[in-house]
Structure formats: C-alpha cells, structure tokens
Amino acid sequence: MMNEADGVDRLFEILMPILRATAVSFEVVCVDDGSTDETVNRLQALQAQHPEIAIVELSRNFGKEAALTAGIFEAVGQAVIPMDADLQDPPELIPQMIDHWRRGAEVVLAVRSLRASDSWFKRKTAGAFYRVINLLGEITIPANAGDFRLMDRRVIEAIRAMPERSRFNKGIFSWVGFRTVAIQYERPERHAGTTKWKYRKLLRFAMDGIISFSSLPLRVWSLIGMIVALGALVYGGFIIFKVLVLGDRSVPGYASLMTVMLFTNGIVLIGLGVIGEYLSQVFTEVKRRPIYLIRSIYRNDQDNAAQD
C-alpha cells in the first residue's frame, strides 16, 4: 500500500468475509510503502476490528518490488497470496486459488483475460514487453500475469533464498518454477485513488526486468562489434583496391566520412550504455544494502505493540 487511505475500508469490507468463508486460519500482512496520508492510521483502526491484520510499516518508500518482497518475507503462512490494495486483484478468486492449492498446485497464477481497465497504450506496451523479455530471456514469463497468485511455502522459501537487491519479482516467481496452475479473470477498475505507476517508472521497471533475467543484450554487442569491424575491413579493402588497382587517388568526400564516424560512434555509445546498465546492477548488488528497512510491525497477537 502507498497512499491508499481512501480505499482500505472498502478493501477489508470485501476481503475479510471471503477469507473467513474459506475456513482456514489466515493473516493479512499490509505493507505500507512510505505513505504520506492516513494509510497507517486507517490500518490500525481496522486492526482493532480484525485481529488477523498485521501491519508492516517501511521506513520510507522503497518501491513496489521491495514492498512486495517485504510482504512475502514477513508472511508466515503455509501459502501466501500477494495482492494490491486497489481491488484490481479481485479477492473473489482467493477461494478458487486455495482449492487448487489443496489439490496439489504449488503456484496458482491469476492471468488477466481482459485488460479493459488499462489504456490502449499501456496494453500495447505491456504486450510488447512480454514478447521482448520472453524472446531475450532465459525463462518464460507468462503474459498478462501480475503479482496476484498463490504460492506454497516451498515456493516462498525458494524465493527467500534469492538474495539479489534489484528485484524483478515476476521473473523471480517464474524462475523458481514448481507445479503451476493458471486461472483466468477480468481485471476490474481501480476502486479508489490513482495509480502510482507513471510511464517513466514502467520503462525503468521493464529495463530492470530484461537486465535481471537476460544477458543477451550484453552479449549481442560482441556480434555487432564484429559486424561493424568486418564492414570496416571490407570498406578498407575496397579503398586499397581503388588506389592500387584502379589508380583512383581522389580524396573521399567529407559527407561520407562524417556519416561513417557518426554511425560507428553511435554504435559505441549504445554499447557502452548497455554495459553501463548491467554495471549499475552489479554496483547495487556488491553494496549489499538491505532490500527494505522496517520502521515498525504491528500485530494483534503481541497486544498491538509495535516492533521497532
């Protein structure tokens, strides 16, 4: 959750009856990702009504991937279901997920059959992202599948064993594998508030995903370098042939020389940019900073006392 104070009451009004009807013991871990509104206060008020609520308050905004990781790491159940607080992940699917889990599925994946709530541009760019990452990557990430899924404790322990700081959870979820069942649903409109995902963040998210799970963009520059070098060698041979065999001693034009120089320099700069993206992730990993920092944890089974 981040600045979801307007929607948390409606969320729990829908969510709690569904969870109680499943006849399983449960805990709802609410991760506050540095909200600046009354989200934490609203959650504490709801906690007095629903003792199953646990509140994990991060020290600042660390971003969705870090907040999602915090929720997964702090959850203690035999199965974990990450979901957004905006009700675009419909709680009505939870009983169906639990049913598949009881029948042996270790991952129950919720796949969006329709994305009518998203803009045309977002649908197209999302489709392009999945095609690109599955083409370049070493694993297949299911298209139109978000973070909304059920994961068995075996899956959670495998995810906890992955220590990387630059988290791309969709890739991590796919990488660990395990027996997976997919169910379809139509993504509804957001209940309250506005999305925190701007296109600049989405672009950064897409780049992090590709870099985290594919080394092909890094390796391909060796091939591009060889092609450019071969082209330069062929062109140099052609110039030598013109001078020695044909006796053409005219100086090549300025325009053609500048074109070749600008093209090759552009190729070099693009290659350095790709290397820089990978190097930035290496830099992040070697510092070994925590993925997130927790300010307080509030649980009813500890008399509502905060753990600092």
Score class of each variant (00 low, 15 high):
Leu246Ile: 06
Ile141Val: 13
Met1Thr: 14
Val8Asn: 05
Glu189Val: 04
Gly253Ile: 06
Asp9Glu: 14
Arg160Ala: 08
Val268Glu: 14
Leu218Phe: 09
Pro252Arg: 10
Phe26Trp: 10
Pro142Glu: 02
Glu4Arg: 08
Leu15Gly: 01
Ile275Met: 15
Pro82His: 11
Leu262Cys: 09
Lys201Val: 07
Leu257Phe: 14
Asp84Ser: 13
Phe12Asp: 03
Val132Lys: 08
Phe205Glu: 15
Asp89Cys: 14
Leu230Val: 06
Cys30His: 00
Ile55Pro: 02
Ser296Ile: 00
Ala158Gly: 09
Leu19Trp: 01
Arg123Tyr: 06
His100Trp: 11
Val29Arg: 01
Asp308Trp: 08
Val31Pro: 05
Pro51Cys: 07
Lys198Thr: 15
Glu38Trp: 04
Gln96Asn: 08
Arg131Lys: 15
Arg115Gly: 09
Phe213Cys: 04
Arg123Ile: 05
Ile240Ser: 09
Trp221Asn: 13
Ser113Val: 03
Pro17Ser: 00
Gly271Ile: 07
Thr195Cys: 07
Gly273Asn: 06
Arg149Ser: 11
Gln302Cys: 10
Leu233Arg: 05
Arg160Glu: 11
Met1Glu: 13
Thr194Asn: 13
Asp9Phe: 10
Ile297Gln: 03
Val234Phe: 06
Asp308Lys: 13
Asp208Gly: 11
Tyr254Glu: 11
Ser166Lys: 10
Val274Asp: 06
Phe148Arg: 00
Ile72Trp: 02
Arg219Ile: 04
Ile81Cys: 00
Ile98Trp: 01
Asn41Lys: 14
Arg299Cys: 02
Arg10Lys: 11
Asp9Met: 03
